[in-house]
């Protein structure tokens, strides 16, 4: 298999996997809709402000990734850029956890006697998103190390490209989840 085909194959494997992950979240959101329609004691809640902050952070991190290709084209080092994205990813995770803390302070729990299905769904949706994000963080860690070692060039940065696609997907997914949880 020549390199171009190999790259295409790897990208397509990722794209199909993303379709699969999308189905996972689509089914979760459908479950949310069905349950909300069925349940009498559905508890309405307001989203933690930390989630607004984390939304801004992940959007910023995704935008920064768009500067990688032009930088590689100019032969510039991309270490700083990738490192900042990694830090933003960690910040996003941190604010998600802070958001959960805010929720528990409001009396919204994942589980237990005082919990409600509405709250449980909120936790599960954000938790599964965060678990998927861990995969992205691993990819960013590897990309950071490789960019520090100057292993990427405009003709050879597939790993970083795959990580970027995955990261953009996580950003879009989060925006959808956030919008859904906020307005539905």
């Amino acid at each position: 298999m020549d390199i171009a085909l190999k790259n295409t194959v790897k990208k397509q494997l990722l794209w199909v996997a993303l379709v699969s992950i999308s189905m996972f979240f689509a089914s979760m959101l459908s479950a949310f809709i069905v349950e909300k329609g069925d349940v009498d004691n559905w508890k309405n809640f307001s989203l933690p402000t930390y989630f607004v902050l984390s939304t801004g952070i992940i959007i910023l991190s995704s935008l920064l990734l768009f500067f990688i290709k032009p930088a590689l084209k100019k032969g510039k080092s991309i270490f700083g850029l990738v490192f900042i994205v990694l830090i933003l990813g960690l910040l996003f995770s941190f604010f998600q956890i802070k958001g959960w803390e805010q929720l528990t302070n409001q009396g919204i729990y994942l589980t237990g006697i005082g919990s409600n299905v509405a709250g449980s769904f909120l936790y599960i949706l954000t938790l599964t998103h965060l678990l998927h994000l861990v995969g992205g963080l691993v990819g960013l860690c590897i990309s950071t190390i490789k960019s520090k070692q100057n292993l990427y060039s405009i003709n050879n940065y597939l790993g970083l490209e795959l990580t970027s696609i995955y990261w953009h997907f996580l950003t879009i997914l989060w925006i959808i989840l956030f919008t859904f949880l906020k307005f539905y």
Partner: peptide, 25 residues
């Protein structure tokens, strides 16, 4: 398979939470 098996995963995940962590999905 790629479109439908993830739905079984989400279905199972909610069940695991109900069984083991006390949620009420």
């Amino acid at each position: 398979g790629v479109l439908s098996f993830p739905v079984l995963l989400s279905c199972g995940l909610l069940l695991i939470f109900d069984r083991s962590f006390g949620t009420s999905f």
